[in-house]
Write a protein that binds this DNA or RNA. Structure first.
Lengths: 232, 232
DNA sequence: CGGCATCTTTGCGCTGGCGCAATAAACAAA
DNA sequence: TTTGTTTATTGCGCCAGCGCAAAGATGCCG
């Protein structure tokens, strides 16, 4: 992984998409690379945001934790996505934690550097707006699902979204390409691991999914979609 | 309301905050004023986003509706806030509808004009990023509440947020300064109007709130806060 | 290969809050 | 005032899904 290839990678991230080559080169010179092992924390909830990253390889989980230790998963981040957006919009604390699910390779900058680039290049500031607009939209949809749908539908929607985001074709069907426990699914769907487990067991019986320990493979996505859309 | 005072108003909006006077004047010249009566739709879900507004006076409700007619309230908008953000980040359809709750006075621009200003002035693009970052953050908090808290706490949090956003001191306590039905509260808290009604009745008995038809006054905010924070 | 930690499954009982339905109150129009 | 419309209240029964608990499966690491 040399500097030249980093420039190419940066040009494909949501943050620097569309930037001219000289800007990408400048951005590359100001960057550093960093690796995190599975389970390591990249960002801790409450910390002051000092660094911005983009994901090169690997998968990250963004969570928010309450005082009494309950967690929700805000989203997963994959290649090309931004980690630590709070540093881009002068938040004074990270609203959530980010943990590596896989072994990850990130490229990072100090917050000041990226903020400076944003103010000198409106294109980058516009990219940030687009990124946050997209995440805001995602949350609107999830909020609506959580408010109006029953658990089974919510779990179905959650899995379909993950398939969209990180699905990998296999012999048995489409596999979600990172380790994903029942607890994780519960924290994304607003339910408990017990209910997720029961639901997946029922689906497995019908041949809709094929799961293992921290592994989910969707065999009949058509059926899953119909569960996600059914009324009542 | 002459052009000069419009410039002052614009300088205080979240979208144009910090802009130099000449830019504000340019923005003002490209703008038009528009009024909406209570109940009128400013934006309809699914429409292509062609116009951006900022609120001068009045209150607006942003909702998202499912195919089968169920609604959730995404947020309320008040003076200084942006209406129709999708037009700023090239969404191809408005993700929700916006309805006037009061009689409203807005200032608007065609999407192309504001997008052009964003690309010529990174400050404005950065403001957009900040706005969307703030809304994204709000949604994270609400999603967490909806996932982890029981109804009574959620309703308490919802009311406290509205008080924060649109509270007005009165003799009886702090009043939410726009008409707000039980149904509205239900659509913000992820429950039914029945449960909201029962909960408010119980609180009224304890003297915590004092409500009427589409009206909520918080008499003992301390007690309401303790309900919002209590464990279990 | 065995021991340990983590993750998953499943039975059972309980309850928060939903859904229905009927009444009452507030407001607007005429 | 009457009439109609929208909004709010409240009783009652029910059930989806939570919480507990205990056993079972899987994979890791020494």
């Amino acid at each position: 992984m040399d500097d030249q290839s980093d420039v190419e990678v940066l040009g494909r991230t949501e943050l620097f998409r569309g930037a001219p080559l000289d800007l990408l080169a400048e951005v590359q010179r100001a960057s550093f690379r960093k690796r995190f092992a599975a389970g390591e924390a990249i960002v801790r909830q409450g910390d002051p945001p000092a660094t911005v990253y983009v994901v090169v390889v690997g998968r990250l989980r963004v969570t928010q934790t309450t005082l009494d230790g309950q967690q929700v998963i805000i989203r997963y981040l994959g290649p090309g996505e931004v980690v630590g957006y709070a540093a881009l919009v002068d938040g004074d604390a990270h609203p959530g934690s980010v943990i590596a699910v896989d072994d990850c390779h990130l490229i990072g900058w100090s917050a000041a550097v990226v903020r400076d680039i944003m103010s000198r290049h409106s294109l980058i500031a516009i990219n940030v707006a687009r990124i946050l607009g997209g995440r805001y939209l995602d949350m609107q949809v999830r909020l609506r699902e959580l408010s109006t749908e029953k658990v089974e539908r919510r779990i179905a929607h959650t899995i379909l979204r993950l398939v969209e985001q990180a699905g990998r074709r296999t012999a048995r069907g489409i596999e979600i390409a990172f380790p994903l426990s029942r607890q994780d699914l519960a924290e994304m769907s607003g339910t408990t691991l017990h209910t997720v487990s029961r639901t997946l067991s029922a689906w497995e019986e019908r041949g809709i999914v094929d799961c293992g320990r921290r592994r989910v493979v969707v065999a009949k996505s058509q059926l899953l979609e119909s569960i996600a859309e059914e009324q009542a």
